[in-house]
Design a protein around this nucleic acid. Structure first.
Lengths: 187, 187
DNA sequence: GTCTATAATATGATAGAC
DNA sequence: GTCTATCATATTATAGAC
């Protein structure tokens, strides 16, 4: 893998786990054995530019991943439950946030940097768009699909935060257990 | 107000708005005209001790506040909607997180400091306990009340993050609009 | 209990050789 | 494109006078 991709991959993982400010450039550089000179060659605007590139990469990766899952399950309920299940497993394996959540970055940076806020917003909008599309194929109306997509995004992200504070995947599982009846309500 | 309370109030507000790492000691000190010597007299263990004290104070303030709202509305639905409404208004007025959300702190610190994680966890558990109690008086079973309390906590906290990235209170309003039917599902 | 001055360190960023 | 050495600054924390 080339240096730039290596930097992005390493930084993405660290940012997701520990947030933005908690990860120093030196930590990223050491983790992937790249020097400061190389980093500033690829990202002239430094750390923040690296973060935004990470968020954009994450956006593409998440889209690919979720679309693959959604294509396997015709039913929106099955599809979403399978997606959460994947989230639960990765949390239980790694003990940290990986995958479709980036709450650490959002809540830390949304009020601090406008370009980062925009990148985070694009990510959430894409996520909601994917959910929305799936719900529409399952007979939801335009407005109830979009409202439900927002609720899904919010409750999954919120549950992830509870998982972090509880050091347990239980909150995510509880939300998953409630979803079937909630999904039926608005359809 | 005495110096210690002043420090706690100022720091609580700044931490909620900008997170932990984004707020330097100097910023807190300057905002309330207190010197470093005074801070370290009251909080010998420095910034992290101050944060934990803030979280504990927040816990009490939130309990008082929510209990007051809940006492005004016998119906769980009315009570929770009124609570969210208060959140919406304070977001629209201030443009930042104030009140019952502390996602910035949680997601930033849960993986970094065990004492802070514990304090955040206590906060969420208290929140869920309050919701749970209210739902129980409205005829929910033990288990469906506790599951619903978790969903409420997660979806409100998640919606707050979407409000931050969208710079709009709409996500919180959408969640509020969906709540009535969701609350009916499990009761 | 509060003040100022200072320490020790870590941060992001830059310059210039190769 | 990558390296090392260095800079300027901000961070938390401490010491000691009052």
């Amino acid at each position: 893998m080339n240096t730039k991709s290596l930097l992005i991959d390493t930084a993405t993982s660290l940012f997701q786990q520990k947030g933005y400010k908690n990860v120093g450039l030196n930590e990223i550089l050491k983790a992937c054995n790249v020097t400061k000179g190389a980093l500033y060659h690829h990202f002239p605007n430094g750390k923040e530019e690296l973060l935004i590139t990470c968020l954009q990469g994450l956006n593409e990766a998440i889209t690919t991943d979720i679309e693959a899952i959604f294509n396997r399950y015709p039913s929106a309920e099955d599809a979403i439950l399978s997606m959460i299940d994947k989230l639960v497993h990765s949390f239980e394996q790694n003990g940290t946030i990986i995958g479709y959540t980036f709450s650490s970055i959002v809540s830390e940076m949304a009020t601090m940097s406008e370009p980062v806020r925009t990148a985070c917003n694009a990510l959430y909008e894409n996520l909601q768009h994917l959910y929305c599309k799936k719900l529409l194929t399952n007979g939801y109306s335009d407005e109830s699909a979009s409202a439900m997509a927002l609720l899904l995004t919010a409750s999954i992200e919120g549950a992830m935060m509870l998982c972090l504070t509880q050091k347990s995947a239980k909150p995510l599982k509880t939300v998953a257990a409630l979803l079937p009846s909630i999904l039926k309500v608005n359809n």
